[in-house]
Design a protein around this nucleic acid. Sequence first.
DNA 1: AATTCGGGGCC
DNA 2: GGCCCAGAATT
Length: 351
Amino acid sequence: MRDSGPSEILLDWYDAHARDLPWRVGPAARKAGIRPDPYRIWLSEVMLQQTTVASVRSYFERFTALWPRVEDLAAAPDAQVMGEWAGLGYYARARNLLKCARAVTSDHGGTFPQTPESLRALPGIGPYTAAAIASIAFDYPAVVVDGNVERVMARLHDDPTPLPAAKPVFTRYAEALTPQERPGDYAQAVMDLGATVCTPRNPSCILCPWQERCAARLARTASTLPRKTPKKPKPVRLGIAYLARREDGAWLLERRPDRGLLGGMLGWPGSEWGDAPEPAPPIDADWQEVGAEARHTFTHFHLRLALRTAVVPVDQVPERGIFVEAGEFRSSDLPTVMRKAFDLAWTQRPD
DNA sequence: AATTCGGGGCC
DNA sequence: GGCCCAGAATT
């Protein structure tokens, strides 16, 4: 066997161990000349931002079935896209997804730009996603740095510098390894390595194709890396949600403003969330307290949401929100905290 | 440079 | 309970 550099060693490992993913063109097919669909790569990469493969799978299948091409997604109604994204989290991604699909369709003739810089100019595409699309979809030798790559680089160099301050250094490590040949397969290979071998806890160093050149394996420090600066504790916020059912079965919901928490999503009208929430019934009714509260943890706070229910006559006009007909309402269109509130108030309890 | 943005699976 | 995840946008 001829002398191989680290990227060739990793590519050999990838040829044998590449995971089968719905958006992936595997190494064998790629060598046979099959190109990935940039639309599917873009969609998967946006869904995968801070989100596990296991969570993304079903959403990816659903989106590509509903909207096979970027032009189809661009033409979709906002409310339908937000509803399909419900439960996946980080809802700014869905809003930017639509902006991006419409920009690609109207400004680029339905074709994704191919360089990291031009991709970076599109909504919802940052440094990582631009590099990932350029390399995977177009075989552009971009330096792809995600959480997996950071972890692998920290361990290869046994570098104790804490993230996020270490990001520029880890990026330089990654730069030095990125090959000109098969950059797309290489990018996916490092991420697969991080996801399946060089895992956050209990890495399988014995299975690692880079074990002989890994400083952390020699030092037995792999499982302690990368270091991260400690996070702030999450405060508790309180709130009240009002779940009104009209006598004909319609539900009183509210479209949340496009910015901020759960932006652009449907939700139950309610109080602000804070230390001492003020009652804010959206319609005059005989509100009943629900015994249980919905508990939910967001990125930076814990929420305890008190619930109120009421049944109101058909001719009554709400002060806030809009009635959604029973036949048009799907609790799966709601973000998880709102779906939890619905389940607690109306399905897990007797009427 | 820090903060804001979700949710699920794992330990 | 906290940690992690194919991060981006905003301040």
